[in-house]
């Protein structure tokens, strides 16, 4: 990881010194254990603050929309999928963007680490290759990094960036997308599914961290914020309305969601949001053989029409 950090810093410094870009968006060391934080380097000196580790969980594509200046971004596979999707939607100008692609083995889920140490406070971590040591007062817990990764990361097949101007890190072995979690959910009865979703939605506090962390959510005014008409209640204690909020968000993401899990990572209440987004990702893949943000040259699937497109929604089951 230190090697990757050094390579990222050197690349960023060079780009800034040679005035190829005005800004490098990457990560710096966070203020808490298991955290890195988005960072904006505008000088070579600031570029030395850039880091790369398994705590770089945010999707930085979020910070690239409608930028006027020339920007470089330190981006992992899922960030780049979102970037590709945003280029197609004219939110990012590819000509002004330099992509420092970083191959990715997955990011560590803070909640899984907290669960592992059973309520004790993690104050420090030490990573030795495939192992991480979580340290605190009366605490020294070893764990395999692999076991602490975000579920979205363990199921991700795109650790290798699909586009980049420069690639950092070793190539990751090819993987197939895995939708076991969704298949399991689909196998439940309609009643069980409704019950599960109601329980999840009861936790929602409508802070909109999910929506705001999502690179693909950029409507000028989100439908939940409309007041004329008011589509849904503003009350957070209405699980039904919370589900409408999430449901509409997922529908709006069909064929666009890069399956990065940023929504779920941002949720302070631990709601299983990727269950909904990934159901959309799976359905679009099965119906149209399309996954968002993989091919810079095709059209977003739901913005395109072929006469032989499957139209299962027109048929009776």
């Amino acid at each position: 990881m230190q090697k990757l950090t050094k390579e990222i810093q050197d690349t960023a410094k060079k780009l800034l010194e040679e005035n190829k870009v005005d800004l490098v968006v990457g990560f710096a060391k966070g203020s808490l254990p298991l955290r890195s934080t988005p960072y904006f380097a505008r000088t070579a000196e600031q570029a030395e603050e850039l880091v790369w580790n398994q705590f770089c969980e945010n999707n930085l594509a979020n910070y690239l929309k409608k930028r006027e200046e020339k920007v470089a971004v330190v981006a992992k596979g899922c960030d780049i999928r979102a970037i590709v999707a945003l280029i197609k939607e004219n939110q990012i100008n590819r000509d002004n963007l330099y992509i420092i692609g970083v191959t990715c083995q997955g990011m560590i889920d803070r909640n899984k680490a907290d669960e592992l140490v059973n309520g004790k406070e993690i104050l420090e971590t030490e990573t030795n290759g495939e192992e991480i040591v979580l340290k605190g007062k009366d605490l020294e817990q070893k764990a395999k990094v692999e076991e602490l990764l975000y579920d979205t990361c363990t199921r991700c097949a795109y650790g290798n960036p699909v586009i980049y101007d420069e690639l950092i890190g070793e190539e990751q072995p090819a993987k197939e997308p895995n939708f076991e979690d969704i298949e399991k959910f689909e196998a439940l009865s309609a009643e069980e599914r409704a019950q599960y979703l109601a329980k999840e939605m009861e936790k929602c506090i409508r802070c909109y961290a999910c929506r705001n962390a999502c690179p693909m959510c950029y409507c000028d005014t989100c439908f939940v914020d409309e007041s004329t008409p008011q589509w849904i209640s503003k009350r957070a204690n209405s699980a039904k309305d919370n589900l409408i909020f999430q449901g509409v968000r997922v529908f709006h993401q069909l064929g666009r969601c890069a399956d990065c899990g940023a929504c779920e990572r941002a949720c302070p209440m631990g709601i299983n949001l990727s269950l909904l987004t990934r159901k959309g990702v799976k359905d679009v893949k099965e119906t149209y053989g399309y996954e968002a943000g993989l091919n810079p040259d095709d059209k977003p699937v739901l913005s395109d029409f072929e006469t032989d497109d499957p139209q299962p929604f027109l048929m009776k089951e």
């Binding site: 910070y63 506090i205 802070c207 929506r211 705001n212 962390a213």
Partner: peptide, 12 residues
């Protein structure tokens, strides 16, 4: 600059 503009901080 890095703030997402969500309400997690204020609601909590």
């Amino acid at each position: 600059e890095k703030c997402l503009g969500c309400g997690a901080c204020t609601y909590l």
